[in-house]
Computed example of a mutant assay.
Amino acid sequence: MATDAVVVPSAGTPSSVPERCVIVVDAALPVGRAANAAAVIALTVGQRHPGLVGAPLIDASQVAHPGLIPIGIAVLAAEQGALTAIRAKAVAIGCDVVDFPVQGQQTTDYEAFQRAVAVVTTAELRYVGLALVGPRKAIGKLVANFALLK
């Protein structure tokens, strides 16, 4: 199966810590499904870019809390049709893209999800959301016209 995924630099190198990370979800999703899409995508972004996780947070009682992303993650909304175009442009400019096809919210069985995606070409896939990880300016240009998810 052909892929247009971007190779992610290994953790620990300066280039492995991207300047920007945004998640864009389908604006028409109900709030629960939008939150689900953002959470699923964010988990994969964290796995692909471990350098995005900041140092542990230590409170005044000296209790350590897990580190969070120091550059933040904007969660934006776009029409579903725009997600495919955003994805294609992001891949073309070398951003790492984590996409979440609509089939993922049609089942709770991951193998069924894999089978459903396997019969759809890349050009025909539709998404509930995606993350863009990479250079600040490049991503900013791609998402400049989208507002925060409400």
Rank of each mutant, 00 (worst) to 15 (best):
residue 39 A to F: 09
residue 43 L to D: 07
residue 140 G to R: 12
residue 53 V to Q: 11
residue 79 E to L: 08
residue 134 G to N: 11
residue 115 R to G: 01
residue 150 K to G: 11
residue 75 V to R: 00
residue 130 L to E: 01
residue 109 D to N: 13
residue 73 I to E: 06
residue 61 S to P: 01
residue 28 A to T: 15
residue 43 L to A: 11
residue 62 Q to W: 08
residue 75 V to E: 00
residue 141 K to S: 02
residue 102 V to W: 01
residue 107 T to H: 12
residue 32 G to Y: 11
residue 15 S to L: 13
residue 47 Q to W: 05
residue 142 L to H: 05
residue 75 V to H: 00
residue 114 Q to M: 13
residue 84 T to R: 04
residue 132 L to C: 15
residue 83 L to V: 01
residue 139 I to F: 04
residue 86 I to K: 00
residue 27 A to T: 00
residue 148 L to K: 03
residue 144 A to M: 08
residue 25 V to T: 12
residue 93 I to A: 14
residue 72 G to C: 10
residue 2 A to N: 12
residue 100 F to V: 01
residue 100 F to C: 09
residue 149 L to F: 07
residue 26 D to E: 05
residue 19 E to N: 11
residue 72 G to S: 11
residue 8 V to P: 12
residue 13 T to Q: 14
residue 93 I to C: 14
residue 114 Q to I: 10
residue 16 S to T: 14
residue 38 A to H: 02
residue 135 P to A: 15
residue 74 A to F: 01
residue 149 L to P: 01
residue 94 G to F: 03
residue 113 F to S: 11
residue 88 A to R: 07
residue 65 H to D: 07
residue 92 A to Q: 11
residue 144 A to G: 06
residue 130 L to W: 02
residue 36 N to A: 12
residue 6 V to W: 05
residue 129 G to D: 01
residue 138 A to V: 03
residue 1 M to W: 04
residue 109 D to T: 12
residue 45 V to L: 08
residue 32 G to E: 11
residue 141 K to D: 04
residue 118 A to M: 03
residue 100 F to N: 08
residue 116 A to F: 11
residue 81 G to N: 12
residue 27 A to V: 01
residue 58 I to N: 02
residue 107 T to A: 06
residue 4 D to A: 12
residue 95 C to M: 10
residue 64 A to D: 03
residue 93 I to T: 14
residue 150 K to P: 09
residue 59 D to A: 11
residue 51 G to W: 04
